[in-house]
């Protein structure tokens, strides 16, 4: 039976998710995600034309804070959980493709 989502798509999604998965894992996910998606498509039995999507259960809006400064953590606390840091900055392997930023 053809799967809802094939291995190439799973690989693409893994890449978007920044998950380095083995080919066995990709295959396993292809199967599992396919059956979950198949189940999820049960939603298509429902006619939702003209139904407003509900992103939020709360019917409130406009929650603002005033423009008043609060204390920041400071450099030491900010870096305290960093896997690699130099006392001032977070350290990552050299970023060569600056244009990857938005």
């Amino acid at each position: 039976m053809a799967q809802k989502i094939d291995i190439d798509q799973v690989r693409k999604v893994a890449n978007l998710s920044r998950l380095d998965l083995s080919s066995e894992q990709l295959t396993e996910f292809a199967g599992q995600l396919s059956s979950i998606l198949e189940y999820v498509e049960k939603m298509n039995e429902l006619d939702t034309d003209g139904v407003e999507p509900l992103a939020h259960c709360l019917e409130v809006s406009n929650c603002f804070r005033e423009d008043i400064a609060k204390e920041s953590l400071g450099t030491d606390k900010t870096l305290s959980n960093a896997p690699e840091q130099d006392g001032q900055f977070f350290i990552v392997p050299k970023i060569l493709d600056e244009s990857n930023a938005s």
């Binding site: 008043i68 400064a69 609060k70 920041s72 953590l73 450099t75 900010t78 001032q88």
Partner: peptide
Amino acid sequence: LTKTKMFCGCALEFAGEPNSRVCPVCL
């Protein structure tokens, strides 16, 4: 031109110690 960041109370200033104006939200 605000005193603080968009979604947290960290002060906005030009320059300064790296990573000094950071809080749980903007971190």
